[in-house]
Design a protein around this nucleic acid. Structure first.
Length: 289
DNA sequence: TAACCGTGGGC
DNA sequence: TGCCCAAGGTT
């Protein structure tokens, strides 16, 4: 019989091992938490940090961002990647002003209705900004649970199942649940990593099913992620030209950054369709006004 | 459901 | 060096 629980052990570890991140500072507003979660989607903390600081200094409230052109959000997003997130965050700011009086909503349902806010982000904002007891199932938390409790190398592919969600909820204490979620997330980010986990530094190693099983390797095929020469890379190149120019640019400025004509045209059309680029009547292009 | 959507750092 | 992957969301 153990004298402490999984949640307690991870929380105690967190107290001494956690990184100091500005959006975890108790003074951060719900808006600041939402901005951090949007930026952290598929993007490492180290790259988010400076952009988040700049962003929050410029737009400390949703209303201030909503008053700007969406292109300004795309420009400030810089090289974080997946720039549609910047557009969606701007649209969320507009929705927050229009539907919620400028205040980030606290309910999962209202959060989930914001553009760019899925199950994870809604749960994260509800938990970290408002203290709601809800499972926060990001890739880190799912991996930790899969290893410790199921003895598996990683969580299953695809969205969390109902039973996975229920199990995660069961493992949350009745008080201070968000603290446990952030601690487990941090454990997954710093110790129980996807590659080269540091089990010797893990506070729950003695109870870990995966470690007990001899750390079996994942079996399934991983996703391929070739990037060079893809439409994605082309889109990135084109958008970078617009981001870096204070004024609209002509076709030639875009032509020179991507040689393949049909692919460049396809990428540009896609950017326009996504609302990331605006064609002007004079044949030039700019970020959306 | 699986494909698509950026970018850069670590091993 | 190339591959892996990092607090996902949308269609």
């Amino acid at each position: 019989m153990r004298s402490s629980t999984f949640a307690q052990e991870v929380t105690q570890w967190y107290a001494v091992a956690a990184r100091e991140l500005p959006w975890r500072d108790g003074a951060t507003t719900p808006w600041g938490v939402l901005v951090s979660e949007a930026m952290l989607q598929q993007t490492p903390v180290a790259r988010v940090l400076p952009v988040w600081e700049t962003w929050m200094a410029r737009w400390p409230t949703a209303a201030m961002l909503a008053a700007q052109a969406p292109g300004e959000a795309v420009r400030a997003w810089g090289r974080l990647g997946y720039p549609r997130r910047a557009l969606r965050l701007h649209r969320s700011a507009v929705a927050i002003v229009e539907r919620h009086d400028g205040e980030v909503p606290a309910s999962i349902e209202d959060l989930r209705a914001l553009p760019g806010v899925g199950d994870y982000t809604a749960a994260a904002v509800a938990a970290f900004a408002f203290g709601v007891r809800v499972p926060v199932l990001d890739t880190n938390v799912r991996r930790v649970h899969a290893r410790v409790f199921d003895g598996e190398p990683d969580a299953t592919n695809g969205a969390p199942t109902v039973r996975e969600r229920a199990a995660a909820l069961d493992r949350l204490p009745l008080v201070d649940a968000p603290k446990v979620s952030i601690a487990v997330m941090e454990l997954g980010a710093l110790v129980c990593t996807s590659r080269a986990p540091r089990c010797e530094a893990c506070p729950v190693a003695p109870r870990c099913g995966w470690l007990a099983a001899g750390r079996p390797a994942p079996t399934g095929a991983r996703r391929s992620q070739t990037y060079a020469g893809t439409d994605r890379q082309a889109r990135g190149r084109l958008l970078a030209v617009l981001r870096d120019s204070p004024d609209p640019v002509d076709r030639h400025a875009l032509d020179v950054v991507w040689a393949d004509d049909p692919q460049r045209a396809r990428a540009l059309d896609g950017l326009v369709a996504d609302g990331l680029v605006e064609p002007l009547a004079d044949g030039r292009y700019r970020l959306p006004a």
